[in-house]
Each structure stands twice: as C-alpha cells, then as structure tokens.
C-alpha cells in the first residue's frame, strides 16, 4: 500500500486523520455556530432565518452590556495583577541564581491544578463566616470581608484567585525572557555606574517587553473567556455581578435553550478574543528587538 502512494500522497495520508478531525470537530462546528447565530427557533423547534436579528438584539440587551463590562473589568484587573506579580516574582527568582527543582515545582503547582479545584479550595478559605481568610484579617485588626458574596467585591476576588493561580505562570515565562537577555548589556551598564533601579527601568524592563507581550497574549486568551472558576464559585452571581459574556452565553444556550442568541453571543466573544490576539501580536512585533 505504502509503495503505491507517491511521497506527496503519503504526506497527505499522514496528516489526513488530523485534517478530517479538524474539519469535523472544529471547522464545521464553527461554521454551524455562525449559521445558528443567524437563525431564530420557533416553538416547534424549527429554525427560521433571522439575518442579523440576534446581533441586533444584543445592542438593546442590558445583560449583554453587563456581560461585556464584567468581562473587560475582570480581564484588565486580572491581567494587571498577574503581569505585576509575575514580573516581580521572576526578578526575585532570577536573582536567586541557584534554584532547586523543588522550588520550580512549587511555583508550577497552582496553575497545573484544575481551576475547578482552585475554586473549591478558595470557596472554603474565603467563606465569610468560617473561612481562614477572614480569621487572618480580623487577627490583624482589619474588618472581615464578604469576598465572593458581595456584588462589589466579587470581580476583584475572582481576579485575586486567578492571579494566585496564574502569576507564577507569567513569572516562569518572564524568567525565560530574563535568562535570554544578553549579559553584555548589564556589563556595559555596570561600567557606566548605573544604579540597580535605573538598570531595571531603563534596560531590563524595556528589553523584556516582547516577553511580557507574549505572556499578555497567552493570558488574554484565557482571561477573556473566564468561565470555570466563576461557574464553580458564584455561577455569575451575586446579582449577575460576575456574569461574564462566556457565562451569559452558556446560560442562554444551555439553561434557556435560546440557541440562536447564544450562538450570536459566542461568535461575538470569539471575535473579541481573536481581535485582542491580533492587536497584541502587532504590539509584540512593535516592541521586538
């Protein structure tokens, strides 16, 4: 069999299973969702072509705007926290020079555990009446917090939990970037007598921008689609204060069975994620050296 096929045919044969799988499980469903987003469903389960009606409905849907706001609030807050803590942690790790493997394992552990488990764990720690977090706060003489239970605090709390999980991931990426910087730059700065802070602000951080851009892209893809942690801890509450676009789309589809409108919401979210990736990619090219 192999002999009768040309090398070209054989290469195609090797990639065929993956190509078929990609078409059936990824490309076709993607197109199907696009089509669904243009349909409305009648009471009997029949579809009727709606055109852009589902998209028009979003404009006047307060829930959609709430989802969009929550998505971006959570996105920017989490991203800022993770880039900050990640960079600080990377600089600390870089200066420590010799690191036993166990330390690396320790910093990998938060983001390798399922987000669902992180959610279960923090639900118990952040419990308003019996949780350990409020015990620490009150022991320090601070007022206890309601954490996930209050509409005003739920997004910052989710951002904190996610940053606990993913700042070490950003740190390990930035550490890779630090280790790749040419040592000659530091030597030149040292000869010129530049102070530590000056070297950090004027040399290290600017040279790290491409690495930080990479970390931003990788985190953006996940943060804009924030789902697991919210579904486990608050299901979008209290009072929709943590209902991201992804949570809203899921509930519209699988709790209210409005497949057309849910599809339109998910297509919109996909466009947002893809757009963000394209823009951030451009920015990464702009700071490349």
């Amino acid at each position: 069999m192999a002999r009768t096929l040309s090398p070209r045919g054989q290469l195609l044969g090797l990639s065929a299973p993956a190509l078929v799988f990609t078409v059936v499980m990824i490309a076709f469903p993607f197109g199907y969702t696009l089509w669904l987003s243009l349909q409305s469903f009648t009471a009997t389960g029949m579809t009727r072509f709606e055109g852009l009606g589902n998209y028009g409905r979003m404009v006047s849907d307060g829930q959609f705007w709430n989802g969009l706001t929550v998505t971006f609030y959570l996105y920017f807050l989490s991203l800022a926290l993770q880039l900050f803590f990640g960079t600080v942690l990377a600089l600390l790790l870089f200066r420590a020079k010799k690191l036993p493997g166990i330390v690396r394992s320790l910093f990998i552990s938060p983001f390798m555990m399922p987000p669902v488990v992180a959610g279960m764990m923090w639900l118990v720690i952040l419990d308003p009446s019996l949780g350990a977090a409020n015990f620490i706060l009150t022991s320090l003489g601070l007022p206890p917090s309601t954490w996930l239970a209050s509409p005003g605090l739920v997004v910052p709390t989710l951002a904190l939990i996610d940053s606990w999980q993913w700042s070490p991931y950003v740190a390990l990426i930035v550490l890779g970037g630090l280790q790749a910087l040419p040592p000659s730059v530091y030597e030149a700065a040292e000869i010129d007598g530049a102070s530590g802070w000056k070297v950090l602000w004027r040399i290290t951080l600017p040279l790290l921008l491409p690495t930080l851009a990479t970390a931003t892209i990788l985190r953006s893809v996940d943060l804009l689609r924030f789902f697991d942690l919210i579904y486990i801890t608050t299901q979008g509450g209290p009072a929709n204060a943590s209902t991201t676009l992804n949570i809203y789309g899921f509930r519209t589809g699988f709790e209210f069975f409005q497949l057309g409108y849910a599809s339109a919401l998910m297509v919109t979210l996909s466009v947002i994620v893809l757009g963000a990736v394209l823009i951030l990619n451009r920015m990464r090219d702009a700071v490349a050296w």
């Binding site: 993956a18 990609t22 499980m25 990824i26 490309a27 076709f28 469903p29 993607f30 199907y32 969702t33 669904l36 893809v221 689609r225 789902f227 992804n246 789309g249 899921f250 589809g253 699988f254 497949l259 849910a262 599809s263 998910m266 297509v267 979210l269 996909s270 994620v273 893809l274 990736v277």
Partner: peptide
Amino acid sequence: VTLVARMAPGTLFLLPWY
C-alpha cells in the same frame, strides 16, 4: 487552524456539538 479551538470559547463548540 487548530488554534481556533484554543481561542474560541468552549461554549461556541458546545452548541453545535450538542
């Protein structure tokens, strides 16, 4: 193309898969 699966929200695929 397979990265689309990494970028699009899971719900987008879940609707047609369902």
